[in-house]
Design a protein around this nucleic acid. Structure first.
Lengths: 218, 218, 218, 218
DNA sequence: CATGAATGAGAATTCATTCAT
DNA sequence: GATGAATGAATTCTCATTCAT
């Protein structure tokens, strides 16, 4: 079974005429790295500028302030993630396969771009921006997409009906989130012999297995 | 089946001779409220002092600095929580009952003291203190305690053997954590007719149900 | 008696070959409006450029820096004003008529181009440029022109000799200046029924009347 | 005839228990000097702190920001000035004597505390604070007080009735203001042989003379 | 001539922490 | 213990000015 690899494109931007760097993107990418390294609050604009290799003031040419940078990172990264999940939801697959895909998306994203996930998971939730209805809605959307997958599973008779799809969605994503978080925070030490990739695959499989079949004896 | 209520005592302290307020405790409790309200980074010492109703120079009599306050909050609150979970693990109950108890502990804690949970969930993990081995170990401990409950369940034959108890522990706690977080952040809107208490009870039951039996058809 | 209308031409410039807009003039006129609106210090080059409808790098083609803009505004506007007053001084009229003309010039200018007056009155005096001998001399010149009118009035026997013409000049212009300033600042609220024009005419007449005859009983 | 000397007390403050410096006052007085020297906009908080001989941050202990400092300076200094004028208005004197007193107050203030006058005259009017109704009202109050003196003069038959007291008030104060401003700006060079005091006395007398009797021949 | 991206010095403001009383 | 005045390093943000295209 082929776990489709997450396709999280770099920060999008209008195509540039002369193939020049694109300072805006430079700044956003640098910001992600800095946020991932030291956290949003400890990140200084000067750090971001240095990381991007540009002058201090230019950051303010493109963004009103630090918070807007975080907001844009969120919008663009999270948006891409949502799209990928949405695509999975539209596929003609069994519910189980869809859940495997979503798990692969979440865990694969971490493998591919650990800094992005770190920022999405650790920083954006804490920022005051998160209080904004727009961001809340964006996060809720993920829960709804998964809930929809589950609801369809029930309708198709693949899943039993006794479980509230909204709560189940939370359970599934919560399990994945903790797996990622504990990786990010280093709570989970990956064994010497195991690559991050194998670990992710193993965890993903286990999550789906437990979620589908439970831990109890038949 | 009686879900044991979480017993999260207020910040402990040596018994005070004259029954006087106990400024240290006053500060810690105020700090929790302030951290919960505005987050650790945005919280100013003066906010905590005002909240505690004391002069803000006094904070430095009791704590070296702001970070130490967070550290103490963590130690005392998290310690109490660990103890409660540990107690559950020692009970002579079925694994299912133990899991129900742990879920009740987590969700009940939120009901009882939402600010504490908010701080534990949102702030302490992000602080630099968390990098300290001591705190990491303390968090890992929770995962280990639950993993131990699950391992015992497998040994007793209550749970099937095919699942890694460490990963399953993550799944179980992750599900609970998201449930709490979404409550904290307000992602989940509780229906008009449903009290927070009923909601917690319902979610706890669903989590244990899914965790035990899975979502798929038998 | 005909009050001669102030003739304050727009910012002068060399005649343009193709009748094209004339960016330099565009900038100066825009600068006056912006200075009038927010004051010299708060005015940003970008504000001026936006007001003029041009790119803001272009401002630096025409002017060395912000201060030079203010300097040019002063030179051109104040110069025009001085010329007008000088012309009045050369007319074959009674001193009273000349004073009425000067009052009309000052108050009329406000009616015609309140922004110009605002900038001349409020901003230019405060700028560091004002410390320059050239600008001080330019302002002094107005006082001298009026003093000269008064001196001639004394020589012709129209005015009594006991008053120092220099001090009297200050009094006359001071009275007019406050009248204008209070209009500019909105201290003086013009009555509903009275147009700005009527108000200016009335104040001008009163100023000349008081200045000529005093307020006391004969 | 005794020209009553202006009584402009230093920045008032609650009496201090131990006769200690009183940092708040220190800051306000330093601010006045700095504003007078370089103007409000060019004055840096650090300048004020250095001038006051205190640490940078302490300024923010007492004032929210630079603008509030200017506001307080205005309130306290202008308030004292208004009181002094009000007192003059209540005296049992001829209108002429009262006007002489007001002129003495204005010109005397300059002699006594040129920096204060400089700041009141040059800076506060320009600040955005001035747009506040409170400050506008405070300035209007001065005009009203003088207008009242004139109105009473008309009622008592000391002044002729044909002149609008409000306009006349503007004329009188405008004359004085220009006299002070030109002193402040150095437009008026005092002759070698004449002390500032004599000059002020002479100008005050001339202003009142012209204002009462006019410049024309009887 | 025009454009607006890029630069960076400068200033305001915050707030943890110290310290005299 | 308790208070809050005092300190000043750290950071954000602004905006005049330069420069490549």
């Amino acid at each position: 079974m082929q776990t489709p690899v997450a396709k999280l494109h770099p920060v999008s931007e209008a195509p540039r005429p002369h193939g020049r760097p694109g300072k805006r993107k430079l700044i956003l990418d640098a910001a992600i790295r800095v946020f991932a390294r030291v956290g949003y609050h400890r990140a200084r604009i000067s750090d971001i500028a240095r990381e991007a290799g540009i002058a201090y003031g230019l950051v303010y040419h493109y963004f009103r302030n630090k918070e807007e940078i975080l907001g844009r990172v969120f919008e663009e990264r999270w948006g891409a993630f949502l799209e990928a999940v949405e695509t999975v939801g539209k596929r003609e697959e069994s519910t189980r396969e869809q859940l495997v895909s979503v798990a692969g998306l979440v865990l694969g994203a971490y493998q591919l771009r650990p800094e992005w996930v770190k920022v999405l998971v650790l920083e954006i939730q804490r920022s005051s921006r998160f209080a904004e209805p727009g961001q809340l809605r964006a996060v809720s959307r993920l829960f709804q997409l998964v809930a929809q997958i589950l609801r369809r599973g029930q309708e198709r008779g693949e899943l039993r009906r006794g479980v509230d799809p909204d709560v189940a969605s939370m359970i599934f994503l919560g399990a994945l989130e903790i797996a990622v978080t504990s990786l990010v925070l280093g709570v989970t030490r990956i064994d010497e012999g195991e690559s991050a990739e194998t670990y992710c695959r193993r965890v993903g499989a286990t999550v789906v297995d437990v979620f589908m079949n439970g831990v109890s004896h038949t």
